[in-house]
């Protein structure tokens, strides 16, 4: 029992940065923009969250900085793709290369200025981002462990996912946004402000990615700065969007399933099951590739990418 509780808890924590990245990318793809810059936006969030946390020792300020910095990266992408109608694939790749590069340059710069040669978050903020403990609730055996003792990011991610699901499924604006991703010309004709909604969704999506990036440095890496801290999670998040079939609620359990895949190799009894580690690392990508193929073979419309994804919308071409 204890083994399973530990495993599930570890899977949830490992899946949380993916959840943020996935939600951010869902927001992008829902307005028709295949943004391959998730890795870059997460990196930008990581450096901003870390540096502001380092300087101010305040968790809330660090979160805001992470959000704004991811959003700023997304804004560049939005200007280039929405207004200047550049190719999404190329712009996204550029954002990734730029974001990782900028993050490493700034990190390296501050590392060089620190006396000890390392950067570590101060005491107070480390306390604030530690796993919560609610008197009574967290002490319930099993359930308390499974539900009430995560770090604040985990709950924040789930709240974001639920809000986003409510937005898409229960509001008229959400429906309009989905329409933009499927057919921007039709949405425009129906009076939806296509450009404005694209900007809003891309920028907020980028901000959410940024928080996921802050997670990788603050929690996964224990608040000690390293280069390339996001380490490919942004790309897994892009994969996860497919796995979640572009739905925020699916992203929650999808992220935890992928989190489980990330840590599986540490929990399998190697004496009994002989599978090379590389296979476990490959698993998320293999599973996603298979899902991608299965979805396209079966041609399930509501499980496919938004129809207009990757294309630019030019009003006069209608």
């Amino acid at each position: 029992m204890n083994f399973w509780v530990n495993f599930i808890v570890a899977a949830v924590v490992a899946g949380t940065p993916l959840l943020f990245g996935t939600l951010g990318e869902i927001m992008n793809e829902r307005v028709g923009h295949l943004n391959l810059g998730v890795e870059g936006m997460m990196s930008l969030g990581a450096i901003a969250g870390f540096m502001v946390g380092y300087k101010t020792d305040n968790f809330a300020l660090a979160m805001i900085a992470a959000f704004l910095s991811g959003a700023a990266g997304a804004l560049v992408y939005a200007v280039v793709t929405v207004t200047f109608m550049a190719n999404h694939t190329v712009a996204g790749l550029t954002l990734t290369i730029f974001g990782i590069g900028l993050t490493n340059v700034i990190g390296f710069h501050y590392l060089g200025m620190s006396e000890s040669g390392t950067l570590k978050l101060p005491e107070q903020i480390t306390q604030q981002m530690r796993s919560i403990h609610i008197e009574g609730l967290s002490d319930i055996p099993v359930i308390g462990d499974l539900l009430f003792q995560y770090n604040p990011f985990v709950y924040l991610g789930i709240v974001f996912a639920i809000l986003l699901a409510l937005f898409y499924n229960r509001t008229k604006a959400g429906l309009n946004v989905i329409a933009i991703g499927e057919n921007p010309a039709a949405a425009d004709a129906a009076g939806v402000h296509v450009t404005a909604w694209k900007y809003v969704n891309i920028v907020i999506g980028g901000g959410i990615c940024g928080i996921g990036g802050a997670f990788t440095i603050m929690i996964t890496n224990g608040g000690v700065w390293i280069s390339d801290c996001v380490g490919g999670l942004g790309w897994i998040a892009v994969a996860l969007v497919i796995f979640a079939t572009w739905k925020p609620m699916n992203a929650i359990w999808g992220a935890f399933v992928f989190g489980a895949m990330r840590i599986l190799k540490y929990y399998v009894n190697k004496e009994i099951i002989h599978i090379p580690d590389a296979f476990y690392d490959m698993l998320p990508f293999l599973v996603t590739a298979i899902i991608l193929v299965v979805v396209s073979v079966r041609q399930v419309k509501d499980k496919a990418q938004p129809a207009a994804c990757g294309t630019n919308y030019f009003r006069e071409d209608r």
Binding site: V79, T83, I97, G99, L102
Partner: peptide
């Protein structure tokens, strides 16, 4: 100054050039 500086410059160049393509 970190070697990643080249990535930043490459990124900036591409952003400007693809926006300029407009």
């Amino acid at each position: 100054l970190s070697t990643d500086c080249s990535d930043v410059l490459e990124g900036i160049i591409l952003f400007f050039v693809i926006a300029g393509g407009f």
